[in-house]
């Protein structure tokens, strides 16, 4: 009998691992958006001095991991495991970063839910006594994602108003068994949901059911009310997906509207920056968490947040073959230690 499992999908982390440091690095567009003052580093060149966007993305991840470790006053040799993922085929950004960093590495793919997935598994490793220090990281790059999933950048055309803009950036979080900082108390692992959306431009609508399902499962399993949290924040549903999630959660008798927001909806100024519905990509929730959310938790603006990473598990091949888009969401409950 699993002692630490609560309800259907949730794990209670007895030791509640600490988030001892974080780092976020973004591209020029994100760096001129509403959250610019929260990012640790803003790169002005999309190529980041490299010869390809893929290498630029990997370099961003390396920087994020390196500096997050540096900020925690640890050395790379003190880190037990690196858990990382990205959007590119065969996880090249993460694999290349792991090659450079030489930390024992688990590569994860959960599309844009990967930041929450890595935090989930990282805290389980620590709670189980298998590691003391773990780094979790994800990255995405507008140009590398665009060429893999959509069309060449210079091609002239119009994107639908409900489409999203892939965030260029990487974030990294250092988890520890001891220390100071917000703590991870519960994780709720999502099920893959598919309500039949086939339009790869409409990822918000595709992912909304997964987000709603995981949020409800978390509240059910823990017995918490939505208002227990100062903020329930999904990864990258953007405007369209956010509105649908609120509606879906309502059909099951829950109301999250007063505490709910979405990383993809706050990272860009959609009107000014022409990002339509909002941001997306593994980097979106990673930089919003490691930039904005954790900094505001430190200031105690938020003390309890439910961070819900959302991922659309499609591939260009499945889209062309007319398959609908399976999606997943993982929830991580991050809480300040209010006794301190």
């Amino acid at each position: 009998m699993a002692k630490r499992k609560v309800g259907q999908q949730t794990i209670k982390l007895e030791s509640a691992p600490y988030i001892i440091s974080s780092y976020s690095i973004v591209g020029p567009k994100e760096g001129s958006g509403p959250l610019l003052k929260y990012f640790d580093s803003i790169v002005q060149d999309d190529y980041f001095g490299e010869e390809s966007w893929e290498k630029a993305e990997s370099k961003m991840m390396i920087e994020a991991i390196k500096y997050s470790i540096k900020n925690s006053n640890l050395g790379i040799e003190n880190i037990d495991f690196l858990l990382a993922g990205d959007l590119l085929n065969q996880l090249i950004s993460s694999n290349f970063a792991a090659r450079a960093l030489q930390i024992p590495f688990f590569g994860l793919y959960g599309a844009c839910s990967t930041m929450a997935e890595s935090l989930s598994l990282g805290s389980v490793l620590i709670d189980g006594g298998y590691a003391d220090k773990v780094v979790c990281s994800t990255s995405s790059h507008f140009s590398s994602a665009e060429r893999q999933y959509r069309s060449p950048l210079e091609q002239g055309g119009q994107r639908p108003l409900y489409s999203q803009w892939t965030v260029t950036g990487a974030g990294a979080t250092v988890l520890s068994d001891i220390g100071e900082g917000p703590r991870i108390t519960y994780i709720t692992t999502g099920k893959v949901m598919d309500f039949g959306i086939k339009d790869a431009n409409n990822m918000g609508a595709a992912m909304a059911p997964a987000a709603a399902d995981t949020i409800i499962a978390h509240l059910n399993d823990t017995g918490r009310q939505a208002t227990y949290y100062d903020l329930i924040i999904t990864g990258d549903l953007a405007k369209v997906g956010m509105d649908i999630t609120i509606e879906l959660v309502k059909t099951k008798g829950y109301n999250i509207e007063s505490v709910y927001n979405d990383c993809g909806s706050i990272i860009f100024d959609n009107k000014k920056q022409d990002t339509h519905s909002g941001g997306s990509g593994c980097g979106c929730s990673a930089v919003v968490l490691n930039g904005y959310l954790l900094k505001e938790m430190k200031k105690r603006t938020f003390n309890k947040i439910l961070f819900v990473g959302t991922g659309a598990l499609l591939s260009p091949i499945s889209s062309f073959q007319g398959e609908s888009i399976p999606c997943i969401a993982h929830a991580v409950s991050i809480e300040n230690d209010l006794r301190v």
């Binding site: 409900y162 598919d194 309500f195 609508a205 059911p209 369209v240 509105d243 649908i244």
Partner: peptide, 18 residues
């Protein structure tokens, strides 16, 4: 899924699209 059939969900999505 047992939550909502595809048609019903399509309707909900349509209402929320810009």
């Amino acid at each position: 899924n047992s939550w909502m059939d595809t048609k019903e969900y399509e309707k909900l999505v349509k209402e929320n699209l810009p």
